[in-house]
Amino acid sequence: MAKTAQEKLDAKREKAYYKKHKHMYRIKPSDIVFNIINYTIFTLFTITCIYPFWYLFINTISDNEMVGRGEINFIPKGLTIQNYLNLRNVSDLGSAFLVSVSRTILGTALMVLASAFVGYLVTKQEMWHRSLCYRFLVITMYFNAGLIPGYMNMVMLGLTNNYLVYIIPGIVAPYNIILVKTYIESIPAELEESAFIDGASYMVVFRHIIWPLSKPILATIAIFGAVGHWNSFQDSLIYMANSPKLYTLQHRLYVYLNQSSNLAALASSAQSAEALKNAAAQQLNSKVIKYTISMVSVLPILCVYPFMMRYFEKGIMLGAVKG
C-alpha cells in the first residue's frame, strides 16, 4: 500500500529529529563498557541459579562409574535411567510421593474454592457485620500464637499424625481471600445486578458470573498454592512425628539427605552384588540416589514453572503488597 502524505511527512520529521539529536543516540565507549559489565554480571548470576539444577540432573542420568570418578561436571556421559528405576526400591518413597501429590491436589482445590467463595461474600455490602467478618479473617495474617501453642491446638483437635492436618488448616487463606476480593471488586457490578433482578440467588451468581470471571486470579492463587503445598515441609516435620507413612516428599527427602550411606542398601536389590561389595561404591550409590530423589522432588516445580511466569509477569500477585 502506498504511504499517505501524512505518513511520509511523519517519517521525514522523525528522521530530522534523529539527525538533530544525533549526539544523544550515538553509542559512546562508556556505554559499551557498561553493557559488557552489566551483561556479564547478570549472565554469571543466572548461571549460578541454573547450574546446580543442571549439575544434579546430569549426575542422575550419567554412568555411575563416571559419576564416582567425578567426571560428570558439565555434560552427561553414558546416559542411563537406571537411577530413576532404582527409586522403586527405596522404601517409603512411594507413600511420600502419594501424600505430596494428593495434598497438593486436594488442598489447592479446597483452598481455591474457599478463597473464591469467601472473597465473593465479603464484597457484599449488605452482609450482616460484613467489615467485622472481613477483619476477623485479615487480622489473622498479623499475629501468630506461636509454634508450640499451635501444636498443642492440633493435639487438642486430634489432628496430629492425621492426614487432614495437611488440608483443613490451609482452606481459609486470608491473603488469597484479599486478592480475590480485590479482583471481584473490579468486575462491573451491573453484571451481578442484572442477574439479581432476574431472580438469581447468591449461589447462582457466584457459580455463573463470579467464578468464570475471576478465573485469572483463581489460576494465580491455585498455582502459588500448589507450589506451597508441594514444598511443604514444616507441617510434616511438626505434626507427623509418629507417622512416617504420612511424611511429605520434602520431609522424606530431608530424612534421606541426613542419612549417611545406608540409603544405598535400600535400593541395592537392583544393583549387581559386586558393585556393593566395597564401601566406596555404596557411598557413591547413596549420593546418586539422593540426587535422584531431589530431582524427582524438583521436577514438578520446573514443570509448572512456565505457567507461573505468565501470572507473575503481569504483576497480579503484587497488587496487594504495593498498598
Binding site: W230, Q250, L253, S294, S297
Partner: peptide, 8 residues
C-alpha cells in the same frame, strides 16, 4: 523448598 536448596 529449603530442603531442595540444601540438596543442591
Amino acid at each position: 523448598s529449603w530442603v531442595l536448596v540444601y540438596a543442591l
